[in-house]
Amino acid sequence: MSEEYFEALLHLIKRDDQPLPLVRAGSHWIIAENEITEQPGLFCLWWDRPERSWSENGALKLRWLNNREPYQIVPLTIQSELVRVRPRHKFPLLLENAHNIRKRLEWQLMLEIPKVDFSDDRLSVFSLNISPFRRVIDQVYNEYDDVRPLFTSHLRISQVTLPDDRLVPLRTFLFHYALGNLRPICNIDFGA
């Protein structure tokens, strides 16, 4: 299992992205049928062609719930170069290692909720019930009442399926390797 094999899989994740296949279903959005696999594997969400800068003076400022006791909301100021947030270019937002790619994607997108209200400091607003993806997007686009239409114009997805159970260790190592390479902002946790 050479370094080249990992690089080849990473290349797929970096380059083989497509628009996220969302369709309207009445008043809400759903992932188009049969467009996203239910197999195990890795997927990466990308934000493409941001219409405005995500950072000020090279830093991205957000609030976060740390994942160690005592749980508290903490300020998150991160160098945009570290997480590759760049104007006018796509950049990685979230990498997932999923047993079921479609289900995991549905949980991250939270398409049933137009907007998460982060206006107060209640821990529940930042709780683990809010997906890491929506925790970032809904803060960055705080001025929107409904962030979901943004997904159709800016969100892209790449995926690598590794369905064989014997590939679980490979999937794990590839996930960590890609995390260190892509450094997607939504994956950040605060555990030590």
Partner: peptide, 19 residues
């Protein structure tokens, strides 16, 4: 953040069995 990303990069590069 550096600790987080470096730890993941190292696990993926060294393929540490117990992770």
């Amino acid at each position: 953040y550096l600790r987080y990303y470096l730890r993941n990069y190292a696990v993926g590069t060294f393929r540490s069995l117990c992770n």
